[in-house]
Design a protein around this nucleic acid. Sequence first.
DNA 1: CCTGTGCTTACAAACGTTTGCAAAACTATT
DNA 2: AATAGTTTTGCAAACGTTTGTAAGCACAGG
Lengths: 336, 336
Amino acid sequence: MAVSIKDIARAAQVSYSTVSRALNDSPLVKAETKERIRQVAAEMGYLPSAVARSLVMRRTQTIGVVVSTITDLFFAEVIHAIEETALRCRYNVILTNSGGDPQRELAAIRALCERRVDGMILVSGCSRRKDLCAEHKLDIPMVIINNVHQEHLGYSIEVDNIGGGRQATLHLLELGHRRIAHIAGPSREWDSVERQQGYEQALQAYGLEPDPMLITRGNSRPRGGIEAMERLLALPVRPTAIFCYNDATAIGAMRAAYAAGLRIPQDLSVVGFDDIDLAPYLEPPLTTVAQPKREMGARAVEMVLALLSGDQQVEDCVLPSRLVIRGSTMPPRIIV
Amino acid sequence: MAVSIKDIARAAQVSYSTVSRALNDSPLVKAETKERIRQVAAEMGYLPSAVARSLVMRRTQTIGVVVSTITDLFFAEVIHAIEETALRCRYNVILTNSGGDPQRELAAIRALCERRVDGMILVSGCSRRKDLCAEHKLDIPMVIINNVHQEHLGYSIEVDNIGGGRQATLHLLELGHRRIAHIAGPSREWDSVERQQGYEQALQAYGLEPDPMLITRGNSRPRGGIEAMERLLALPVRPTAIFCYNDATAIGAMRAAYAAGLRIPQDLSVVGFDDIDLAPYLEPPLTTVAQPKREMGARAVEMVLALLSGDQQVEDCVLPSRLVIRGSTMPPRIIV
DNA sequence: CCTGTGCTTACAAACGTTTGCAAAACTATT
DNA sequence: AATAGTTTTGCAAACGTTTGTAAGCACAGG
């Protein structure tokens, strides 16, 4: 079917090893021969077989990526960055989604191992260390972005979640808010725990004790944000501001607030986390803590590549987060 | 490094072909032997090499997907569907993005061919037929979702763009709007042309002649929507409603409208296209024409698989679009 | 005791590359 | 003209599988 190196050899009257060398621009073959072979190859529409090459080279030039879902813009943007920088390094990306299920995640990792990817990147990997290790006999470099568990399980890239949560909350405090609610993410996600810690630290820095009534939980998606917000709105004394686990949650929270007839930010200030590309276009433009998505993706593949080249210097990195103030926050109407 | 079938053969004292058969549950090997071999394999942590298998089977169990960008929620959702149904059929997905550049798209296709993917799916493929064909010597099934060009170049899946544009516009007309603007997508995208046709047909059905002043163009992203909207707002007589090429554009348009102090839908009705998952959570919830994203993705892989199994019955399909009415549309204040 | 018949197992080729090493073809030197 | 040296080419093994075919073995029938 596909034309192989042997077909070219036959057509060009040389051995197929020569063809291989010619196409790889080896200095071992005479310039004219090289040229002739190349021409024949081009005429015949030759496309080398990456699978055969992978077999002998024991390199697939492939990075496996597993992510819970690609339909969250934050993940989509990180994956975009991964794909872009992988491409630049002549790697392709196999994408698998786990739906946030550790079982499926493990299955995905297994499949990637069978495919002999050169390295793997888990975005919000959700499996426990011990499970991961089992699969890890073929030592394939694996880096994890925003590890869900606290445990360190290999090379990881994190954002400064505590600092981000603190900044967000401090911003609200500085505006004069005192009843500041928090809609956390799923309790098993470590970054949610950290962001909440930052929130609590900020409150304490202002001499406020975190109020359990003001802390509720979403599912990291708009739906969860709506439900959480409805709970908060049902409180005898409503919060004047909210810090949300992520932008998707914030979007849900805002929706619920609007549905209840509130205005944002006049009646309620909202801060998100992630700074998805859509954040500036929301109504109102969302104040949020930016994660350096491009950099996270880029770093992850660089890390994999470094690991691949046997670099021992590779170290976990935690990148700074940055508060981006837009239109969803303002001082409370009545200064408490 | 990785344990191979030969290592197992040695450990289990059989030939490696027997190991292969045992692990593939061939009836040719005795039950006891099979069991013993499996045990050894499990103990040794054997993971079959998909690349070796691919080489001999001439099947990679891989589908290549090329998309302009994954950071548009519409694409992300389609790709999610593709990945899910591919997984269900035991296929993996190699994702590549072209950034909407035909050059890069071609390069991506080439790379996928080298990897010997079993089939390819282009989401909004942007290359011209003749360019594509060149690459197409190894006849790899290729299906295109929302082809950018009008030309038919292989199996394709489309949504009823004209009908969708018509429905959207009709909805606005029925509400009483008469000055209805349209923000189109990039002129080279065929679906934009069609949606605009639908828009014009609807107007004509109401005896209105499309007004060139009211038709402008975005870039299919929020930024373009903003700019287009600003142009429309500068018009001596503003439109009372807008039909946008897609939801991202609509989001931008709404942003610009808000920035100009307008209220939506009281001062301006807005309709989008795509029905991204976020649409119901926007402020106001966006009225939009839904594309059956899940089905489009699923159909695409089913089509590839059918083609792969030599099915001759495979036919292009155009799926229906469906208007979803939410909060961004209402009758105009002053009936014209 | 020999032969045919099933059931198991082993051998070997093939998939399409890369690459070490030997062989061949030149070139230059004596 | 022979030799050494250099460049160019070919041979063959290897990568880890699958699979067609041959071989081995036990057992039954003649």
